[in-house]
Design a binder for these strands. Structure first.
Lengths: 213, 213
DNA sequence: TAGATTGTTAATCGATTAACAATC
DNA sequence: TAGATTGTTAATCGATTAACAATC
């Protein structure tokens, strides 16, 4: 299945819809949902909900709405979340460790959360060989080998700003195609490698603007 | 100084420009920068750089460019970062503690980083009264008092998803007008309260989509 | 002055919303 | 059938880019 050039603005909303459907799936009273209702819960207009979904197929029934379980499964498939995705964290400092715990817990609790942190990497000899929440910490020089061995497909960069580009380069060289960056720097990666950024300080600085009103 | 209805898309780019200017300010060789160069470093087109800045005044000189130090000061003023902003973190678990350390360090190291974490809040009696990196942990029932006493203007929510809306409600009731949310839930806040979200799992799920190519 | 780069207007592009025929 | 809601096309809205006169 191949969908060409669907805008990232669309892709960003799919996890929002999926979250609503996951919540609803546990409620036996709600087997159907309209674009109206799904939109309200996701914070998106109903027309946009329908347009977004229509890029991938005809998932609804006119006059009826969308089947919650069915649509959830479709969205999970579209987002490649129907299979386990193995994630590495580079940087086993307090931030890296916190994400490891956080995401690992989520993976164990929620059987449909298929993002699994399976390895941490760090340079500190004190940390290498230890485990955090049962997840092993490896030395950075093992990164390439472990990416292959463990089939790591995604990575989270949680190192200090000055090492973030180095970490990204190592990940790219190892073949990782999706990177979530927490360091407060703009990373440069080759075409075909996908970046997401969770830049705490940019967000705080943006919020500061609105303190004036 | 009051700038009406400037789009959030514009505001989001100002911290990007500010970051570039901060880096450049330490380089005595670069006293001037063109919209071209600033754009390349910030990842924005040169025309957009000029248009963004022009919303707030005429900061450049034709044929010359922008003075780095001057423009930096102007941007810091526009973003209200010319004064110390006191920030609370709600949730003193590993994530909250990691942010506290991270941002607190940044505040001490970088004299122009005026976002200062000065309080943590938690419900766990084990944690209340303790300090993390010298920052005191208070009980949640003290939130309202401490917001006033310490003049807390911003907060970071780092509690489990099921408590995030409660935390937001308490913050709003206490008068906090800017909230950065890390919990994987859509928060509802009244008009006039500004939200930023750093939703790790939404970003990871979005990245998963691109693993197909 | 000649060259460069701003500030700004007009043109383009893309994303969201409105509307409605199709149909469950 | 009557009512509801989808999928889709056309209209609108907003954001980015191109172009260029002003001017340092």
């Amino acid at each position: 299945m191949r969908w060409k050039k669907i805008s990232d603005a669309v892709i960003r909303r799919l996890p929002l819809y999926l979250r609503v459907l996951d919540e609803l799936a546990s409620d036996p009273n709600t087997q159907l949902i309209s674009s109206q209702e799904l939109g309200v819960r996701a914070g998106v207009g109903p027309a946009l909900v329908r347009k977004d979904l229509a890029w991938f197929g005809e998932f609804g029934k006119q006059g009826v709405g969308y089947e919650v379980e069915f649509l959830r499964d479709e969205l999970r498939r579209i987002l490649n979340l129907d299979q386990e995705i193995k994630v590495a964290i580079v940087g086993a400092g307090s931030l890296g460790a916190a994400f490891a715990r956080y995401t690992h817990k989520r993976y164990s609790d929620d059987s449909s959360f298929n993002l699994n942190i399976v390895a941490l990497f760090d340079n500190d000899p004190e940390k290498i060989g230890a485990q955090i929440d049962g997840i092993p910490v490896y030395g950075s020089e093992e990164l390439k080998d472990k990416v292959e061995e463990l089939d790591l497909q995604m990575a989270i960069i949680a190192v200090p700003a000055e090492y973030a580009q180095v970490a990204a380069d190592q990940l790219v060289a190892a073949g990782v195609k999706a990177i979530l960056n927490f360091a407060p720097v703009k990373l440069t990666v080759p075409e075909g490698v996908h970046l997401a950024s969770a830049d705490l300080s940019l967000e705080l600085q943006r919020l500061a603007y609105y303190l004036r009103d």
